[in-house]
Design a protein around this nucleic acid. Structure first.
Lengths: 349, 349
DNA sequence: TTGTATGCGTTATCAT
DNA sequence: ATGATAACGCATACAA
């Protein structure tokens, strides 16, 4: 179990009786002309000596890395594995690797990871988090690191952005509910510490408005404490709690719109636990379309946010930008869509 | 948007009027004595010039990396985010970063990732996958890379291993079901392409045996095709299909034991869709204890496999091994536990 | 077509 | 306490 020194191009050069330069030319597929006989000897010796190139040496020389950083709040939130999968698929396709970091929505953690990433001389970062320290991010960019920011309507910062139309998503949910004959619709959410939540709420209100339904204050149910960083099931628990509050209302709504699917899961479970039925007694619409939303009972009607596609797109944009295929920043907003399953009752029949 | 050359220790040295060596001594926290006045000037200049060390240079020189590779089959399978979380928590605590790869249970993909990781001069790999090419892995190890293999009873390969007692888990499930008065218990699974599945089945059989229940061939339900690499919901769909087969049996079992929670989700949903009830008509026990198992209806009784703890342990073992705190390989098997929720009916009352 | 020499940014060795 | 210099492994400009 002794440390076997790794073989370098010099070892191979010595073995074959040529120079390191020639070995490098062959082994790095540089396309540089080398006589076939010699080339073969080098290739042979490389196998023989079990040569594996040291990427670090190459990186130092060429000052380019094939890595891109990805920062997400928490990989345990089922939305993000899908996102990461999309990013990775596209990245691998182009020969890039991803370096994954969980920020836990903590500002300092995120900042440290970004710094650490930069010290590794990565070419770009996909940032799905809440860093609003624009000066910091601008510094990062000026040092040559490309950025794709997800879901952050940071008006000021000039960089690539991929957004999602949460407002429209919220409106679609309400439209559908109204179409199904509902007019008493509650909105259940965790605190508006994320833009996505307040946007969805905005959609809720606009949806009511354009369907001529007055917004009722007591139908807006937001929990008090935000502690999701500790516990992934926070949203779920919150959904459960809010149901209790809901049922204490003098006029109980016929439907609820949840700020996300996890919350909806909690809502559905609590309703059922109480001996009521979804959607017979209360209808529920979620937001996200997690893979698991189709697996619960009843299968959840929800607004789809295209996670994998977002990931792919982010990868593509970042890598293009790193290769300077495109110099101007790009800004895209993805569209929600309604996924009808089984958690909404049609009051019209 | 011009490329601003990054500042190096030489720039700082020039600025301050000292040598690069001294700058390095200060900025790398080497503990080497440098006069306070000079040290401060260097620190100041570093801030001033916005210096950020180039890890690549350091790595090349010191030939050590603070990265560890992690290979999982598919981050979309909800078990793995938890595992990765555990790995990362522990790794960060000790100053290591993780490089995540999805092998999609594909042999060649996995092999390529391992090679790529090694070329990056990482110190170790946590491998949660199915590479059974021992010679390959041995080569890797001989080149100095430490290995922690998860869930792979590769008898031959000498390296760190963390296992899980699937057999015992299976037995616990059956014991519990019997305790609740069940004797007609089916086993539903996807094909035995993973050790965990055949082991769980072994536990199923042993459980029946020690409870004096004869194993019935027709209660063993395994789907025909394995195509999970394409579709994460494969297990779920499979569970649904198998229910149909189950109900065609002349004597329908009172309970089913699912090879994993995802499969159980499908089973539960299909049963309910058919107008039957869980657990009133059919009881279901799962295997894994995904976070979501508590969120479905009814909440799933299942066998817990400690994902986060496994991750933490793997990190700890790998890093210790890299630091040669411990030289001998270690081999641990983690214990299952029963999580009782609401998907099993007590026939005794 | 091949070889020599240099430099990427850092740390370590050896003088001073 | 500080500075000059070599070395890490590789790729490349230049010479031959």
């Amino acid at each position: 179990m002794e440390k076997k020194k790794k073989t370098t191009i010099y070892d191979i050069a010595k073995e074959v009786g040529t120079s390191a330069a020639t070995v490098s030319r062959v082994l790095s597929n540089s396309g540089y002309p080398v006589k076939d006989e010699l080339r073969n000897k080098i290739l042979e010796a490389a196998k023989e000596l079990n040569y594996s190139p040291n990427i670090i040496g190459r990186m130092l020389k060429k000052n380019e890395s094939r890595d891109i950083g990805v920062i997400v709040p928490n990989i345990s939130n089922p939305f993000f594995p899908q996102l990461v999968l999309g990013i990775e698929q596209e990245a691998r396709k182009r020969g890039y690797n991803i370096l994954l970091c969980n920020s836990f929505r903590d500002f300092e953690t995120e900042r440290k990871y970004i710094q650490s990433l930069c010290q590794k001389q990565i070419g770009g970062i996909i940032l799905s988090s809440v860093n609003e320290d624009y000066v910091f991010l601008e510094e990062i960019q000026q040092s040559g690191v490309k950025l794709v920011v997800l879901d952050n309507d940071s008006g000021d910062l000039k960089c690539n952005k991929i957004g999602f139309d949460y407002v429209k998503g919220g409106m679609m949910a309400i439209d559908y509910l109204v179409e199904m004959g509902h007019r008493d619709i509650a909105f259940i959410s965790s605190p508006f510490t994320k833009k996505s939540r307040s946007k969805a709420f905005e959609g809720y209100k606009l949806g009511l408005y354009r369907n001529n339904i007055a917004f009722t204050d007591e139908y807006l149910m937001i929990s008090d404490i935000e502690k999701e960083f500790e516990n992934t099931t926070y949203e779920f628990e919150n959904g459960k709690c809010m149901v209790d509050r809901l049922l204490r209302l003098e006029k109980c709504p016929t439907a609820v719109f949840a700020v996300n699917d996890m919350t909806a899961f909690g809502i559905v479970q609590r309703i059922i636990n109480l001996g009521l039925k979804v959607p017979e007694d209360i209808s529920v619409v979620g937001f996200d379309n997690l893979e698991l939303s189709s697996m619960i009972n009843p299968p959840l009607t929800t607004i789809n946010q295209p996670s994998i596609e977002t990931g792919r797109l982010a990868s593509r944009i970042l890598i293009d930008s790193m290769n300077e295929t495109r110099r101007e920043d790009i800004s895209i907003s993805l569209e929600p869509s309604l996924v009808i399953r089984n958690s909404v009752r049609n009051l019209r029949i």
